[in-house]
Amino acid sequence: MLVTGVSRDLGRRFARAAADHPDVERVIGVDVVPPRGDVGGVSFVRADIRNPVIAKVIAKEDVDTVVHMSVISTPGSNGGRSTMKELNVIGTMQLLAACQKAPTVRQLVVKSTTHVYGASSRDPAMFTEEMEPRRQPRGGYAKDVAEIEGYVRGFARRRPEVVVTLLRCANVLGPQVESPIASYLRMPVIPTVLGFDPRLQFVHERDLLGALGHAVAAAVPGTFNIAGEGLLTLSQVVRRLQRPTLPLPGFALGGLGGALRSMHVSEFSPEVRALLTYGRGVDTTRMRRDLGFSPRFSTAATVDDFASNLVPTGGRTDRLLADLEHRLPSARAAVESGAHR
């Protein structure tokens, strides 16, 4: 099995879990930079998927399953936007070209994202897998993902005997996740778009790893939305995180994003800004019915788990109300009787 993008936390953890699995003979992790944490039984190959070296690795190691996880949403430390685009698009092209040449490859799993649906005021409430974005993305991550998915579909046409599974994951959230949305929600004061309350869906990091593992094991071809059950509005999320908000007009949020990027706190890319304005929901019927995967964490449970690792910076009103509740005579009596017992 070949796993790309193992230098990132999720990729590394997935590769490790796969290596520990009894049915998996060998796991090769590929990335440009070595992974930082413990990789366990994964044999790491330092290779850039942007050049044809990757084909040799696949051919030499008799890889039968490729899990492509190096579609990145943030430029991160290894360069700016152009590097990111190159890594995403050219990297995927090279990887798919290598897979096409390799007769041993039987299965391809690609981790994509629901950002591919975009977010606009013309969106239906819930996107199903066959829906297209209402507005074609003009640039950035969403466009990368759209192009990558196009190449993956092309590959599936050319190698029909390979099982191609495309997982469109909602925003991943979890105690250890580093993503634009996670760092946004970790901010002590959360800026929101004035007058909008977007619907958001999350998937827990453990469920994401579970979904990838399930996709490899089940080998069901197709495209699947992966998201926790239910939806939360952004106002609910920040209340559950007990964070104060700062409503700003949409254009000001962009300016704030620029200022925050220069301070390396967070950034608001156009697709994140659109998501925080209009929100998005995806239909997960196919994930349950056809892929046969059901996440353990609902959207609300994911947010609560994320919140348990954060120090609340707000929640004063709730404490006031709780205090008032305790002062009610019946509550006082209950507390006293409880103390007596």
Binding site: T233, Q236, L321
Partner: peptide, 25 residues
């Protein structure tokens, strides 16, 4: 007392975001 307790519980539910919205919000 019950009425006030109910009102307080409602307010707390709203303030902590512990309520349900469906797929359409």
């Amino acid at each position: 007392e019950q009425q006030l307790a109910r009102l307080l519980a409602f307010l707390r539910r709203r303030v902590t975001g512990d309520y349900v919205v469906d797929d359409y919000g």
